[in-house]
Simulated scan of single mutants.
Amino acid sequence: MSTQDPAHRPRPPFPPFTAETALQKVRAAEDAWNSRDPERVALGYTEDSEWRNRDVFLSGRAEIVDFLRGKWEYELDYRLRKELWAFTDNRIAVRFEYEWRNDEDRWFRSYGNENWEFDEHGLMRRRYASINDFPIAPDERRIAI
C-alpha cells in the first residue's frame, strides 16, 4: 500500500483495537463527516468498501462520494456526534445523532447505529448504518454548527 497517494495511505490506528484506539477511530470519523467533504470522508474507506445507509446499498469510494454529495446537498448545516458503543478485534459499533435542516428550513435530529469493519491498514471495508429522523424545532437543537 503506497503511503504517498492519499487514496492508498494507511489510516492508523490499526486493528486489533483497544478502548483507546477504537475511540480514536470514532473521533476521526466524526471529524471527517463534520467536514462535509465527500472526498475526505471516502479516503477512510477501502476502494471496494460496502455500505448500507438506511435502505441504500453502496459499493466503492466513487459511489460513497456521489452519495455524500447528494446527502449534504439535502441535509444542510449537518452536524454529527458519534459515541463508541462497543469494539472487538477489527470491528467497532457506534451510536450517533446528527442535526440538519432541509431547504424549507425545517430541522431534524437523526439517530442511529453503525457497525464498522476494518482491514489491516485501518481502512473501513464495511459500514452498516440504521438511521431514524425526528423533526425538531430550531430551539431544540443540541449540536452547535
Rank of each mutant, 00 (worst) to 15 (best):
2 S>A: 13
4 Q>G: 10
12 P>R: 09
16 P>Y: 02
16 P>I: 03
18 T>M: 07
20 E>F: 06
22 A>Y: 02
25 K>G: 00
28 A>C: 03
29 A>T: 06
29 A>C: 08
31 D>Q: 10
38 P>V: 08
39 E>I: 09
49 S>M: 12
49 S>Q: 03
52 R>I: 13
54 R>D: 12
54 R>V: 10
55 D>P: 03
56 V>N: 03
57 F>M: 07
57 F>Q: 12
57 F>T: 10
59 S>L: 14
60 G>M: 10
60 G>S: 10
61 R>L: 07
62 A>M: 09
68 L>R: 04
73 E>W: 05
73 E>R: 15
76 L>V: 09
77 D>C: 11
78 Y>K: 03
78 Y>C: 05
79 R>E: 10
80 L>I: 08
81 R>D: 02
82 K>M: 14
84 L>H: 08
84 L>D: 07
89 D>Y: 13
89 D>S: 15
90 N>Y: 05
91 R>L: 02
91 R>Y: 05
93 A>F: 06
95 R>W: 03
99 E>K: 13
99 E>N: 11
99 E>S: 08
101 R>Q: 15
103 D>H: 15
103 D>T: 05
105 D>Y: 13
108 F>H: 01
109 R>M: 01
109 R>A: 01
109 R>S: 01
110 S>G: 15
113 N>F: 09
115 N>A: 11
115 N>W: 15
117 E>D: 08
117 E>G: 05
119 D>W: 04
119 D>R: 06
120 E>K: 13
123 L>P: 09
124 M>W: 02
126 R>S: 11
132 N>M: 05
133 D>N: 13
134 F>I: 02
134 F>D: 00
136 I>E: 00
140 E>G: 01
141 R>Y: 03
142 R>H: 11
144 A>C: 04
144 A>D: 15
145 I>S: 14
145 I>K: 13
145 I>F: 10
